[in-house]
Nucleic acid binder design. Sequence first.
DNA 1: CGGACCCTTGATAGCTTTCAAGTCAGGTGG
DNA 2: CCACCTGACTTGAAAGCTATCAAGGGTCCG
Lengths: 215, 215
Amino acid sequence: MLSVIQSPAVAPVRQPAAIVLDGLHLNFGPGETIFDEGQPADRVYQLISGSLRTCRILRDGRRQIEAFHFAGDVFGLETGETYRAAAQTLGPCSVRVMPRAALDALAQERGDVARRLLELTTESLRRCQDHVLMLGRRIACERVAALLLDLAERTGAHALLDVPMTRQDMADYLGLTIETVSRTFTQFQHDGLIALPTTRKVLLRDRAALEEMVD
Amino acid sequence: MLSVIQSPAVAPVRQPAAIVLDGLHLNFGPGETIFDEGQPADRVYQLISGSLRTCRILRDGRRQIEAFHFAGDVFGLETGETYRAAAQTLGPCSVRVMPRAALDALAQERGDVARRLLELTTESLRRCQDHVLMLGRRIACERVAALLLDLAERTGAHALLDVPMTRQDMADYLGLTIETVSRTFTQFQHDGLIALPTTRKVLLRDRAALEEMVD
DNA sequence: CGGACCCTTGATAGCTTTCAAGTCAGGTGG
DNA sequence: CCACCTGACTTGAAAGCTATCAAGGGTCCG
């Protein structure tokens, strides 16, 4: 039901060894919810193609996106009873699903699987800590620059980025408003840091300057 | 060298089963650095008594505190080569130390130890995600209220809190400035939510109202 | 062509920061 | 015992960054 291989075909330019869930395949359209916050966390997923967001919502509607996920990423991994964030597709997505009970059982008997789960969790923690630093101590333009560079790295793009999310998604990930994100893009254009062939494509024209902003 | 027990004496009112590192004991004075960001991560620690902060610093000096730790907490757990944050004591601290290599080896051969490491990492991730939501989408007074309630819960205090950190530490944890934290405390006092017997003691007078702010 | 959604831009408001004093508490030494 | 010193904390005034409110433009699609 599950295999641990060196470099899964589904994750082209990504991390080292990855777990591959080998279960049911599901397809989702754009903007669909895979699971909701608070729902019983009885399944674990791996994204085969497409991209998605995980997010939490406060009572009054304020939304915080915790993470974006791309091909190869495992998501929906929980230790509690319920999902702590909702998972929603950004565009069409193909995912593999595995019952959590099965994964837990497998981790119980196979040390390498348990170890891989720890690696995945640690990687999430690392990203989350970077997110904290960004939200706590970086100004708007630094946050946007960090997101662009992260996107470039994770999607394996060199200079021309495909941006799968809306400005609102970016804002809710960066702890900003849609207007501030938009204005920052405009500013970056004027400063020659990026170009915007279309709304959803970003050409990095001065990566060094962007990296300088992030650290 | 290491045992997994139900409820260690070092952690009075805390989580379920906890790992206990059984190695060298060390004592630190107030404001001492246990390890620095970027240093080789070759040891794992458990706090026996006292409290500490883990933090990261940007080139220009901006500081973000990632977490506060209290008696029983394990810290310094890394999978990379180096520590990603520094650990500094808030007051006098007593810690146990274990070589990381030993812990890794033990996790390799004992499933329960490996599982406990995953639990610890997951718990850190859960806290980190709450931190992200707070920094991204909460206003100043909500952040301060959240910190006070978290402190109350983690130190087992009912109404009278001992605050082991400075206002600056709180600010750097909450993504605010020291002045804003101070003003918020003053405001809370005026509104009858808290009282401040001393600077470092907080009496929760209206916990319901504070909880209402946090969600 | 109309509608819906997304994005951009402008003007204004507001929360938090910055800058600047001033107060307070704890520890030291005369 | 008390003056003094230092670090921590509080408070005030002004500035600034980002949010809010509002309107307009663009694009895709039925």
